[in-house]
Nucleic acid binder design. Sequence first.
DNA 1: CGTCCACTTGACAATCGTCAATAGCAGTGG
DNA 2: CCACTGCTATTGACGATTGTCAAGTGGACG
Lengths: 260, 260
Amino acid sequence: METLAEKVLFDTVFGRAETSPRNFACAPKAAPGFGLECSDCEIKGLSVCESLEPDEFELLERIGRTLSFPAKATLFEQGREAPFVSNITSGALRLSKLLPDGRRQVVGFALPGDFLGLAMQPTQLFTADALTPVKICQFSRVGFSDLLDEKPRLTRAMMNMAAHELTLAQDQMVVLGRRTAEEKIASFLIGMRNRYARIHGASVHVPLPMTRLDIGDYLGLTVETVSRMITRMAREKLIVIVPDGVRLLDVPRLEQMAEM
Amino acid sequence: METLAEKVLFDTVFGRAETSPRNFACAPKAAPGFGLECSDCEIKGLSVCESLEPDEFELLERIGRTLSFPAKATLFEQGREAPFVSNITSGALRLSKLLPDGRRQVVGFALPGDFLGLAMQPTQLFTADALTPVKICQFSRVGFSDLLDEKPRLTRAMMNMAAHELTLAQDQMVVLGRRTAEEKIASFLIGMRNRYARIHGASVHVPLPMTRLDIGDYLGLTVETVSRMITRMAREKLIVIVPDGVRLLDVPRLEQMAEM
DNA sequence: CGTCCACTTGACAATCGTCAATAGCAGTGG
DNA sequence: CCACTGCTATTGACGATTGTCAAGTGGACG
């Protein structure tokens, strides 16, 4: 339901994707309460689950369940117990760390296919808030951990995913440490576009479900600087600001600014 | 032993390893000096190897070799082929990413027990330079990858290590994005102390094998700012500058400044 | 003894943050 | 329907932390 609404929003606001979307072929069933329906899963091809044989999904289905959260819901908080790990199937999350004095660092935005709890730690290392209505596929942490011991290919997939996240984190370090405000925004926009491309297919339309404050806390900037830079890029015809996102006008130029 | 060091230096300086990758998994070498001696390994308890049964070390010994590098040697360069992965057994490395215009971000300093090549990518994602003489335990990437498919516990250990690195990277994002110059230095010093504590045991003496420039490129600061902050902290009796490092005088205060 | 490099220190500049005011929009309730 | 509230975004003026430029010290090494 949320997914459908999202897709409608996406299509309404941004028009059709440049290349055909790959993952919305079949309509998902709203799963009431418990139980998984992996065979219907819309992000099968993106998640760690793809490393399992079809019959192995049964094991997952037994220890997992699907859950929905409304926008603005907090899925879990930094420092609390972490009894579950989960796989995002639709929606967007903000993952953030809070400093004692209130300063905040957004360590990432989680999208469909992303896994929460890679660290398999007993306590949460950051807070996760829903930016849109969100659906996840949730597993008991210890149950999932036990499953890893039985399914080497799943472990391998998790290792690859962790390694991939690590390289993204290192790229983000470069952005945070060595780039100007304008370059940070450019690299953020290009990065979001690339991430949506994996899910919806390539498009110059980039939904931004997070606020300017969230973007600032992700890039190590203030709201005001984010706003000024986005305004400036719009004035310079690099982008157009649309409701709930932006449209990229000069991708080559933006990519050059974001260049690694 | 001296012969080996010279040969390695030769290979390093003249780039033999990177231009003609040899497959050590298949090479039936029994040359004295080559091969592993895992039973004598000084970082056994710290590395991924600890996840293996004693008899499984034999497999590692067959596909790996030990190598030494002098200080300032470049182990590998960003963008080049990555035929090997390795485990650091002694020394310290600087891992850095270079931007087209010359700006540099140090993404980490690698110490004994750290693993290079977690991402298992065919090309290097960053450059690794020796800050001190370095010893590593090196494996062919594909050979090691194959071993992972046979040894689930090793895969699990690698996953945990990648996940741990990821949490460290996220902590570093907070430092880069949301901390002042002084806090960055404090958190860097406390972080280095904690890492050395795992290896050598706790101590207020913190060796700093890297230059101020390296520290700046790690923390998103300039050399001058790093120098000023360290000088100031020494003036305020938080630390004492000693040859090749610092001595921490007021650890509680520093920890408070670095607090997460 | 001279060169090189790391480090330090000072003066000045600029990017970005802080503070403040305002507009726009959605939701709420009289 | 409209006032009211609260949040987000934008814009301007000003300020400070940090970067830039420059000069100089000291240690390592040939």
